[in-house]
Design a protein around this nucleic acid. Structure first.
Length: 277
DNA sequence: AAACATTCCTGCACGC
DNA sequence: TGCGTGCAGGAATGTT
């Protein structure tokens, strides 16, 4: 589920729902995430008030009081939901509710992650800048830094596929497998093309379209491909607007040529062989 | 039953 | 040689 638009959509929901709430208790039923959950987490979050909720790349940053930040990443299959009754899973599978934060209004913030590739870490505000997870991450796609002048030199001399480059979090933050295919379709660039073969004009389009696609996806609450639900348990609506992702064999929305699938860097990639060169 | 929305690590090749 | 960089591949894991 979680590329930038899904995390941003979740951030907005959580900002509405839980800012100002105090965490009165926390429970960990499964600490084995991407990195083992710190044993001190439960004790350290207890009693703290949730302040601003920010996002960096695909990470969520929840201010806890003024001096701590809860860093959350959803990995491949994670979700963070606010529930009145923690046992009432609804569409969610409570077997994989690994961490539960009990709020002072009786609701719970629940981290669920079947594959456990996600991450939760509590940082002192002062450690944030040096946090390993955030250190090498490139500019936010909506930021002033992400421009053709920034991207262009990073494409020069690179033999890796442009799709890999776009998904490299050090290049630009937040683009994952679904949106990379969608961006390159709209830019008219084949995902297998080596980065060094991308022209200036194409790179310009990629910059502009990256912003456009991610923004449109956020506006639609992200993409629900298989199972992703947002913080209120709602599916994202961008799935209906996907033009190539998971559309192998279906006609291209522009030219009716069947969409093709190809594996790049061990990830499925989709493109129109006519519209994308 | 192969595929999967992410990240991290390893090892190899290459260039200076 | 030794070091840094780029790149490919694999692993982590449970579900559909």
């Amino acid at each position: 589920m979680p590329e930038l638009p899904e995390v941003e959509s979740l951030r907005r929901v959580l900002a509405d729902e839980i800012v100002g709430r105090r965490i009165i208790a926390a429970m960990v039923t499964e600490p084995r995430l991407r990195r083992p959950l710190s044993p001190s987490l439960v004790g350290r979050v207890k009693g703290r008030v949730i302040g601003a909720i920010n996002r960096r790349a695909k990470y969520l940053l929840l201010d806890l009081d003024t001096d701590a930040i809860l860093l959350v990443h959803l990995g491949m299959s994670g979700s963070l939901t606010v529930r009145r009754d923690p046992a009432a899973g609804g569409a969610l599978d409570t077997r994989h509710d690994h961490v539960r934060f009990v709020l002072d209004d009786g609701r719970c913030l629940i981290f669920n992650d079947p594959r456990r590739f996600g991450l939760i870490r509590l940082l002192d505000r002062t450690e944030l800048a040096e946090a390993e997870e955030l250190k090498g991450i490139g500019p936010e796609p909506f930021g002033a830094e992400f421009t053709i002048d920034y991207l262009w030199p990073l494409t020069r001399g690179r033999s890796t596929a442009i799709k890999n480059l776009l998904m490299d979090q050090r290049i630009v933050a937040g683009v994952g497998n679904i949106y990379a295919s969608e961006i390159l379709f709209r830019a008219g660039v084949r995902p297998t093309r080596r980065a060094r073969r991308v022209t200036w004009a194409e790179a310009e389009r990629i910059v502009a379209i990256t912003r456009q696609v991610l923004e449109e996806a956020i506006g639609n609450g992200g993409t629900t491909f298989r199972s992703y639900l947002d913080g209120r348990g709602e599916p994202g609506r961008f799935a209906e607007r996907l033009r190539v992702y998971d559309r192998t064999g279906q006609p291209c929305v522009k030219c009716r040529t069947p969409i093709r699938a190809v594996v790049i860097g061990q990830r499925s990639s989709f493109y129109c062989p006519r519209c994308q060169r």
